[in-house]
Every structure is written in structure tokens, then in C-alpha cells.
Computed example of a mutant assay.
Amino acid sequence: MQSSEAVVVPRAVETTRWLAVGSLLGLIVLGLAWELWLAPLRPGGSLWAVKVLPLCLPLPGLLKRRMYTYRWTSLLVWFYFLEGAVRATSERGPAVPLAILEVLLSLVLFAACALHVRIRLRNAKP
């Protein structure tokens, strides 16, 4: 059965969706650039670039507004927050601003996922 009515998505849901997707993509690009070009542990790139692979998994679910994906992504992101916090306080040179950016992107991703879930649950029809 098809409905002739268009589904209206609240603006806040779309905003948090795009914040989540944008910060997730930012973390992926940052992780690759950091480990391969900007401040690799070894000249020519580092195998540590594979750390971004888990970040690729939630992208389809976030784009499709799957509530479960938003929930587990808000837990996954804490590993990247911790890595950024540790590297920001323990490393020197170009890695420090990259680590701070990783922390900020992680916080934005967490906040966007948490708000997305909260808004959708609040707007859900009983």
C-alpha cells in the first residue's frame, strides 16, 4: 500500500543527520590524510590508516536515517575521541592540531547522533 502523502521530516532531524554525516566524513578524511601524508609515523605513510575502516560502516545507515546506526555510532566515536585526546597530549609537532581536530569532530559526531535519536524519539507517534 502506497501513501499519497509525502513524509515530512523535521528540520532538526535533517540538520542533525547532515552534521553526523559531515563529521563522520571529516573523521574519515582526517584519519587517512593524517596517517598517509600529513604526519605519518613512517615516511611514505603508515599502516595505521586502516583505523578509518570502522568509520566507513555507519555511513549508509546514517544516510538512510536508521535509528540503530545512530545509536551505535554514538558509542563507536568515543574510540576516536580517546585517540585524539591521547595524541594531543602526548605527541609534538603537526600531530597536535590534527589530534585536536579529531577530538572536535568526534564531539560533533557524538552530539549530532545523540540529538538525532532524541529528536526522533520525542517526535515519534505513540
Rank of each mutant, 00 (worst) to 15 (best):
Q2P: 14
S4A: 10
V8S: 11
V9T: 03
V9R: 04
V9W: 02
P10D: 05
P10F: 05
A12N: 09
E14L: 13
E14Y: 11
T15L: 11
A20F: 01
V21F: 07
G22E: 11
S23P: 05
L24P: 06
L25K: 09
G26P: 14
L27R: 06
L27A: 07
L27N: 07
I28C: 12
V29C: 13
V29N: 13
L30F: 14
L32V: 14
L32F: 15
A33V: 13
W34A: 10
W34S: 11
W34Y: 13
W34R: 12
W37A: 13
L38E: 11
L38Q: 08
A39V: 06
A39Y: 03
R42K: 15
G45Q: 09
S46F: 12
S46H: 10
L47C: 14
W48A: 15
A49P: 05
V50W: 15
K51M: 15
K51W: 15
V52C: 08
V52N: 04
L55D: 00
C56H: 09
P58H: 01
P58T: 00
P58Y: 00
P60M: 06
P60Q: 09
G61H: 04
G61S: 09
L62D: 04
L63S: 04
K64W: 10
M67R: 05
Y68E: 08
Y70F: 02
R71W: 00
W72V: 00
W72N: 00
S74E: 01
L75P: 01
L76D: 02
W78E: 01
W78P: 00
W78M: 01
W78S: 01
F79H: 04
F79W: 06
F79Y: 03
F79V: 05
F81I: 03
F81Q: 01
L82F: 02
E83N: 04
E83D: 07
E83W: 02
G84P: 01
V86M: 11
R87M: 08
A88L: 05
A88M: 05
A88R: 07
T89P: 13
E91S: 08
E91V: 11
E91W: 09
P94Q: 06
A95D: 10
V96W: 03
V96R: 03
P97T: 04
L98N: 01
L98S: 01
I100P: 02
I100E: 06
L101C: 09
L101R: 06
E102P: 04
E102R: 06
V103A: 03
V103Y: 02
V103I: 09
V103T: 04
S106G: 10
L107Y: 01
L107H: 02
V108Y: 02
L109R: 00
F110G: 00
A111T: 07
A112I: 00
A112Q: 00
A114W: 10
L115D: 07
L115P: 03
H116K: 10
H116C: 08
V117I: 05
R118P: 05
R118D: 12
I119N: 05
I119H: 09
R122Q: 14
R122Y: 15
N123M: 13
A124Y: 10
K125N: 14
K125Q: 13
